[in-house]
Design a protein around this nucleic acid. Structure first.
Lengths: 169, 169
DNA sequence: CTAGATACGTCAATATGGCTGTCCCATCTT
DNA sequence: AAGATGGGACAGCCATATTGACGTATCTAG
């Protein structure tokens, strides 16, 4: 896995982390990188008449089966009403199903159906293709740096949630 | 999805860039990092009755004064109509002004007013605070890696545009 | 056992930021 | 002079988010 640093638009980061130049560069790359990655799955979603909001729910349910509604609300940071519509759509298409919680019967535990898992895997494949090629072009050490910076962008109060998501992979 | 998921909790990226674990980690960190960064300026925008779409236009006009409408359309990748509404709002608030192009009189060259520049700088400050602390926590080498991976996410046909933005800093 | 908190659902109304399609004018290019 | 291009504007639609209020089932603490 060679590191093709000569192709990079950027030299290296300066030790002066407050320089406007470097902040703008991060803002722009985040904007373009994030929007381009999300666009990679729009076609797949549209085939089912779904949008990006549906994918976000699908994704996190795939990631953490038996997630409760309130946990998912915290992750997505949207309102109950917004999530409600999304989950209704997913349930109608039989991509997501709910069970009543055993420990706490007020809770609903969310899971993908077999069809939902197939669909999520298909969408994930498009994400994997994009990200894997970016990882490969940047090289292993860059990927680690990529993660570290992004972790630093997550506010302390959200960090536990993100770590919890990733601990049981 | 026949990817082995027996994964060490290694602090660095594995050389196997196609592993699901690492792709999901990137997807999630990008999601949380991007959304949390953008939320950092929502309050500042709301004070002027503006939204994120307005900020994106404001940002790129600040970045490249005398940008034309069609150049901005390419950057934002939205329709003329959507951008039109945004620019109307910004012009009404006297944050952005246009001049007729000198070389090509069909063009309109976009610029921030003095007030627009002040406002953009204020919003940028919030972004800088977030990003600078993430940069500092991650360290210089991580920042370079962060940029390299994000560059790899930008499709070839958009890359020239991003480089053009950053060349004259 | 009861009071209150919590998990979830649902109603109605509203805002934002995208989209398509069509048509128009001014200006540049050939 | 004809056609291409840059920009603006109309009408209508859709997706996704918001707030606030209210209802029901269930859990927990006094």
């Amino acid at each position: 896995m060679a590191v093709p640093s000569s192709v990079s638009v950027a030299p290296t980061a300066s030790p002066l982390f407050l320089r406007e130049h470097e902040v703008r560069r991060g803002v722009e790359l985040l904007f373009f990188g994030y929007t381009r990655l999300t666009r990679a799955i729009d076609d797949g979603l549209a085939e089912h008449g779904l949008g990006r909001a549906h994918h976000r729910a699908l994704y996190f349910i795939a990631r953490q089966p038996d997630l409760t509604i309130s946990e998912l609300l915290k992750i997505l940071a949207i309102t109950k009403q917004s999530l409600g519509r999304v989950l209704t759509d997913l349930a109608e298409r039989e991509l997501v199903e709910t069970r009543t919680g055993e420990v706490d019967r007020r809770q609903k535990l969310l899971r993908l159906t077999a069809e939902g898992a197939r669909f999520e895997a298909q969408l994930f494949d498009a994400l994997r293709t994009s990200l894997a090629s970016a990882y490969a072009a940047a090289g292993q050490e860059s990927v680690t740096g990529f993660w570290r910076v992004l972790e630093g962008l997550i506010p302390a109060e959200d960090k536990a949630m993100v770590i919890a998501l990733q601990k049981d992979i």
